[in-house]
C-alpha cells in the first residue's frame, strides 16, 4: 500500500471574485503518476500550481482549505516557499530554458543552493541529463546555448533541470502539448521511468496520454473534482455520467 504524499482538503480558490476551484479534496500517493484531465479552463493547471504555491505570484488570489505534503501544511505562514519549491518541482507547458548554456541551465538549481564545486556540479548535470533521457544527445555540446535545442530536447532539458534540485514531487503542466509525437513518446517513456523514484502529477488535455501514462486519474470540470480513481477504472467503467461523457468525447 503506497504512502500518501499529498493531501488536499476542501481547497477553494478565487481569482478576485471568480471561483476557479471549488472544494477539492483528494489524496495523492507517492511514487506513482496521477493525471488531471478535463476540458480547457476547468482549473486543472490552477490546481496543479497550488501544490507548489506558484499561485502566490498572481495578485488577487485567495485560497481556503488545506494542502498537506508529508503531513505538513504547506500554506502555513511559517513555511518557507523557496524550500518548498525545491522539494516540489515543476515542468511547464512551454519549455522555458534560460538563455544560458545547457550546462548552466541544469546547474542553476544546485548553484542557487550554494553548490559551486565544479566536479560535483559536473556529476549532477550528467546524472540529471541522463535521468531525463537526453544525455547522449547533448553530452558533446553542454556549453552551447540551450536555445539551440529542438522543442522536445528543450523540454527534456527542463525536466533534467528540475531533477537537478533533487525534488520528491514533480508537477508537470501539459509537458508534451507543444511537442511532436516522437518527442511526446520520449517524454512519456521518461515519466514511466521517473515514477520509480518520484511522485508525479501531470496535467494533460490529451486523454490517451493520461490513459497510457498514469496510475491514477482525476477528472475536473468547471473547477470541481468530478471523479478520481484508478486510471483503468476511470477509462472503462467511470462512476459519474459526466466522466463518461468526457471520456467518450461527447464534449471537450
Amino acid at each position: 500500500m503506497k504512502q500518501t504524499k499529498i493531501q488536499i482538503r476542501d481547497l477553494t480558490l478565487f481569482y478576485g471574485e471568480k471561483m476557479a476551484l471549488n472544494s477539492i479534496s483528494m489524496d495523492i500517493s507517492e511514487k506513482e503518476v496521477t493525471a488531471f484531465i478535463g476540458p480547457s479552463g476547468c482549473g486543472k493547471s490552477t490546481f496543479l500550481r497550488t501544490l507548489n504555491r506558484m499561485n502566490d505570484l498572481i495578485p488577487h488570489v485567495k485560497i481556503t482549505g488545506e494542502v498537506l505534503v508529508d503531513s505538513v501544511y504547506i500554506y502555513d505562514k511559517q513555511i518557507d516557499v523557496v524550500n518548498l519549491r525545491k522539494k516540489v518541482g515543476m515542468v511547464f507547458q512551454k519549455s522555458n530554458p534560460f538563455t544560458k548554456s545547457i550546462y548552466e541551465n541544469v546547474a542553476y538549481g544546485p548553484r542557487i543552493n550554494g553548490l559551486n564545486n565544479r566536479k560535483k556540479l559536473d556529476e549532477i548535470v550528467e546524472t540529471s541529463l541522463q535521468k531525463a533521457f537526453i544525455w547522449e544527445e547533448v553530452k558533446d555540446r553542454l556549453h552551447d546555448s540551450a536555445m539551440g535545442l529542438s522543442g522536445g530536447q528543450q523540454q527534456r532539458m527542463c525536466i533534467a533541470r528540475a531533477l537537478a534540485v533533487n525534488p520528491e514531487i514533480i508537477l508537470m503542466d501539459e509537458p508534451a502539448s507543444a511537442l511532436d509525437p516522437i518527442s511526446t513518446a520520449k517524454i512519456e517513456e521518461l515519466i514511466f521511468e521517473l515514477k520509480k523514484n518520484y511522485t508525479i502529477v501531470i496535467v494533460t488535455h490529451n486523454m490517451q496520454q493520461a490513459a497510457r501514462v498514469s496510475d491514477i486519474t482525476a477528472f475536473f470540470y468547471l473547477g470541481e473534482l468530478i471523479e478520481h480513481g484508478k486510471t483503468k477504472k476511470i477509462f472503462t467503467t467511470p462512476d459519474k455520467k459526466q466522466t463518461e461523457d468526457y471520456i467518450t468525447g461527447r464534449f471537450g
Binding site: 505534503v69 508529508d70 505538513v72 504547506i74 502555513d76 505562514k77 511559517q78 513555511i79 518557507d80 523557496v82 524550500n83 518548498l84 522539494k87 544546485p110 543552493n113 553548490l115 560535483k120 556529476e123 549532477i124 546524472t127 534540485v165 533533487n166 520528491e168 523514484n197
Partner: peptide, 23 residues
C-alpha cells in the same frame, strides 16, 4: 540514490520547511 545536494534521508518536515531568514 546518487550524490545529491541535500543529505539523503531528507524528509519533508515542518522543520526543514520553516521560514528561513535570508540576509
Amino acid at each position: 540514490m546518487d550524490s545529491s545536494i541535500e543529505n539523503t534521508g531528507f524528509v519533508f518536515s515542518k522543520e526543514s520547511l520553516r521560514k528561513k531568514f535570508r540576509w
